[in-house]
Amino acid sequence: MRSVELGRSGLQVSELGLGLASLAGMFAVVPEGEAVATIDRAWELGIRFFDTAPVYGYGLSEQRAGMALRGRPRDQYVLCTKVGRLLEPGGQDLQEIWAEPPPGIGPRLDYSYAAVMRSFEESLRRIGIDRIDLLHIHDPELDFRTASTEALRALVELRDRGTIRALSLGINHADVAARFLREATTTPDCVLIAGRYSLLDHSAADELLPLAHQLGVSIIGAGVFQGGPLAAARPSVGYPPLPPEAAARLDQLRTISDQYAVHLPAAALQFPLTHPAIPTVVVGARTPQEITEVAAYLGHSIPPAYWRALEQAGLIPLRSA
């Protein structure tokens, strides 16, 4: 798998990364052996970029990352985790999406300097590792003032110490990410943006992507399948219904994909990578088979005429020649 550079961070990552939220029981239980086997299969496929967070399964994702990655050459992969939530008894920032959360433990939002340092140390212990390569401030819009001052100061200090190599945001809101890049006293090295530059949502193109490209900040694409609808060439049972406008766009995407014999999930995976600010995308998977199928999408040939047809239909932003 092709290796790419994360801009100003200096990190080299695989063009495809594996997000570890699903393996922590997001929406459905994933047995421990299956989770480890999925990470093992990703490694066999050449994936060397892994993204986790304390809140994913309330520590379970980080623990499983450690099980699968410990013992592998440390300089051969890039590992990300996040700060902004502490896991502790009685934590009230609960999310119902986790199928097997530990009893009595929950997240508590806290972007203070002390909480970030504590969160980082606790992540190291859960994973069983001595450094994190890329550390995200998670959901900074929930307390922008503290996240952009105290949390950012903690990350800068950790980077200066050498215990992280790059600092980033992990966020779902393109406008907040752009504001952070404009206003923060230290510019992040990267931004992981979920679901805001996909075949169904281009909101990151309005301000975030041009600004990031100008500043040399790499954008890590995530949520490329938009929560499910773009992951299947035809509707599948279990996906939540799209709003009418998005559903109509999806129908148009399917029609044009059929006309050009393009597999829509492959186009969804490759589309973010056509932007110069996005060198890599992160996807989730629950099984070795799922990550095998998604990794194969990178090799699907998509003719330039297909992208031009999407542009002419107003389905993707116009791209420079």
Rank of each mutant, 00 (worst) to 15 (best):
S203F: 09
D189I: 00
D175K: 09
R249P: 07
L211V: 01
E245G: 08
E245P: 02
N172S: 15
F225P: 01
A233C: 11
H202R: 03
L208M: 06
S198E: 00
G238D: 10
Q252M: 14
L208C: 10
E207I: 00
D201H: 08
D251S: 14
P188M: 04
L253D: 04
L199D: 04
D175N: 13
R196F: 06
L200Y: 11
P272M: 11
L200I: 07
A277T: 02
A267I: 01
P188W: 04
A178D: 06
A204D: 04
G228E: 08
P235S: 03
P244V: 09
T185A: 15
A194Y: 13
A231L: 09
N172I: 04
R254Q: 09
A267Q: 04
R249T: 01
H173N: 14
Y260F: 15
R179F: 04
S218I: 00
H275A: 03
L250W: 01
A222H: 07
P229E: 10
Y260V: 02
A174Y: 06
T185F: 15
A194M: 10
A174F: 08
A205Y: 05
I171K: 01
H275G: 03
Q252G: 13
A266C: 01
V224W: 05
T185Y: 13
L242H: 06
P244R: 11
T185M: 12
E183I: 12
A232Y: 15
G223H: 11
S198L: 01
I193R: 03
P279R: 10
T274D: 03
D251K: 15
A178C: 08
A277D: 02
F271R: 04
A204E: 05
